[in-house]
Write a protein that binds this DNA or RNA. Sequence first.
DNA 1: CGTTTCAATATGTATATACATAATAACCAT
DNA 2: ATGGTTATTATGTATATACATATTGAAACG
Lengths: 246, 246
Amino acid sequence: MSIVETADAEGSVSLHQRILSDISERIMSGAWAPGHRIPFEHELSTQYNCSRMTVNKALSQLAKAGLIERRRRSGSFVRRPQSQAAVLEIHDIRIEVEALGLPYRYERVARHKRRSSAEDRALLELGAAGPVLALECGHFAGERPFAHEQRLINLTAVPEAADEEFVAIAPGPWLIGRVPWSEAEHRIRAVAADRHIAAALDIEAGAPCLVVERRTWSADHPVTHVRFTYPAESHTLVARFRPSQG
Amino acid sequence: MSIVETADAEGSVSLHQRILSDISERIMSGAWAPGHRIPFEHELSTQYNCSRMTVNKALSQLAKAGLIERRRRSGSFVRRPQSQAAVLEIHDIRIEVEALGLPYRYERVARHKRRSSAEDRALLELGAAGPVLALECGHFAGERPFAHEQRLINLTAVPEAADEEFVAIAPGPWLIGRVPWSEAEHRIRAVAADRHIAAALDIEAGAPCLVVERRTWSADHPVTHVRFTYPAESHTLVARFRPSQG
DNA sequence: CGTTTCAATATGTATATACATAATAACCAT
DNA sequence: ATGGTTATTATGTATATACATATTGAAACG
């Protein structure tokens, strides 16, 4: 969950939202290092020419999100980055399949260019409407379906994608080759297969599946949203790590 | 005489916090089903005898947490509840539950001390046989089962655990307090609930569940293996990260 | 009958104000 | 010095108020 709402460039952002993003910007960029005391509420309210309540709303949210720590009488301090190490690699399904010693096959099922619907914008966390590319792809290990991919690409951020058919190359590797991502978010959950997914994966409707959704940003612009659906028995995510500072 | 006033005994919680937990309680318990319109801000402010701003603070947080959806002129409506945990960070279920504003309850279901079976050794990646403690625990959010825990503790590495009943404290927090872990491995997958899990989580057998298994080492010695099983609809793991640093 | 306009309404944001609470600094007494 | 008291300060919570904004239902109109 992004702390900074994707509320987008045009001026229609609330003030506490702007204060919040200004501060988290400074924290994320490293300008304000961990331990740094950020200005007091009354200082910020002077800077932004607003009431303390407005500043308080922004700072409370930052505290809730874990970016800062607030201490009475002392002020608010930048916290050390959380240990959320890059545990989940951006995975290339071809490599996963080939690591199993199975032949990999990719298939583009559908491709639609369209103006973003409300749902598209929600998935991409996109503020304004614009063109998107919707893709549906199958990944196979030998004869068996290995994963089903449903992807949205924000054509405003990646206009070249409009000219690519994605028949010969999967969108994942294509994007990695040309769009440097600056941030990604994964959502992982279990679901029951609906009929569409069941057909695509050749399993029973209602069978458990692992869904991995990834949203990617490049320099604060939403780039793509992808949902991989794996039949339960074919996939386990493995993440190994060590504790970082604390 | 509102819904409120019973307690006040110990809980020195803020009012907006109490409004928040009252409402999320009703949502999570199913008393207010998805789609149900919750009372208007002005109704709640009358019920709780407080200002609209206080109610607004609670409802805004509920909306941000995804439990409700707010529509101007129409009111606020219950959404399908989903908890979010930062995957590899928050592993204390109590904290996850309390973050939802719900009362947390822990229950030890079973406890067996035994010499490690072959299966135990496989789970713990243990070379030689030795004593282990097998635990089964329930974690509840309000009245509803939130997660089921199945755990093995390597008593060779943590002999003190043999003297602990784990009735008053869950094994997770107990271990964290005394065994510094140096490495951990997660495995995440989707499964269909077997009869045992279905009964424990109060769901249908065969329903999809998210399973998170964690193995922990301390200075190269296997410490514990734990498997958390969450009902699919109640849980999404979220991990957000940047490529360069953490 | 369909369309436009308008008023009513619930939420969204911001303000000034007030008092509570926790942590620290400063002070004082032993 | 040492320990305890007090004052100061920043945050925490709550209030009443105001106006903006989105949406809806109904009235007015062609």
